[in-house]
Design a protein around this nucleic acid. Structure first.
Lengths: 148, 148
DNA sequence: CATCATTATATTGCGCACAATATATTACCT
DNA sequence: AGGTAATATATTGTGCGCAATATAATGATG
């Protein structure tokens, strides 16, 4: 039956917005949007990375990333430089303050879980199924790791 | 550890976008975006509904819904009328072609599942956990029903 | 019944997402 | 080397989401 409550996609869509809404007040404190926070998280793992690499990881294209990265650059959190050996690619490097921001970001996920009143087990369960479906349907680029 | 692959929210965010990307070519065929399709789905269940009621159901505010509904009205799928007994509220009614569109929409979810190569069981599992978390964290407004 | 609060929708502005296209650089081929 | 394809990023345009604010109608209170 074609009914909203039966649509898994709507539940995911609504829940991901809901979680992001819980992130918002915390991210406001460090002047980041949720997608900007994700981009930095990728860079905190490994640095430098090209726009392409960030895009594959976040599943976003240059139409989304280029302006987002320019905003992060305006905030002096990253630097965008053309690779000299191949002028097509733009490499993203963290500035000192971009690196440092990780310390403030570290406490955010726990606070979000608390404000949403959900447990790690519930989130992990959800994450594992979601990652499985992402691998099956898309050009799966999420590796399977442990927990938060 | 603050790592992308450990973030349940990223998995949900990426998966919901991925599913919507699988909806897109099918919805293009009936000239709808995914949020427009959701709004119509709510109206196909129960009609007429106010902007407020649609917003509670979809968890969207007037800043999102007003322009979306105007676009649906331009496409002659709905009609927006001020309630005479209370000129503040706008009631949304389906036009004949808006009602009829449901017939074409009925086959879409099955096609999406097929193109994503996922089973009903996987989606149901995901949906049930997501609905549970939505109820816990938000002002839960999803009822628990059966399957698709 | 005048005032003030409340409610419902609309408007504005910003930042994504994504399709389509453009631009510039490199790789390939003969 | 010259021409063509492939690659990487940027640009443009449309449609969300959401915060903040505006507008307009109704309700409540003295």
């Amino acid at each position: 039956m074609l009914q909203l409550d039966n649509q898994a996609c709507f539940a995911l869509y609504a829940l991901s917005r809901e979680i992001i809404n819980h992130y918002r007040p915390l991210l406001d404190g460090i002047d980041l949007t949720y997608p900007q926070y994700l981009a930095l998280m990728v860079l905190w793992e490994c640095q430098p990375q090209t726009v392409n690499q960030l895009g594959e990881r976040l599943r976003l294209d240059s139409g989304t990333l280029t302006p987002l990265l320019k905003r992060l650059e305006q905030k002096k959190l990253i630097v965008r430089t053309r690779r000299s050996s191949d002028e097509r690619v733009v490499e993203i490097t963290l500035t000192p303050s971009g690196k440092e921001l990780k310390n403030k970001a570290l406490e955010i996920p726990a606070k979000v879980m608390q404000s949403m009143n959900v447990t790690m087990e519930e989130l992990s369960e959800l994450r594992i199924i979601a990652q499985k479906l992402l691998e099956k349907s898309g050009r799966g680029c999420l590796s399977e790791t442990t927990t938060d």
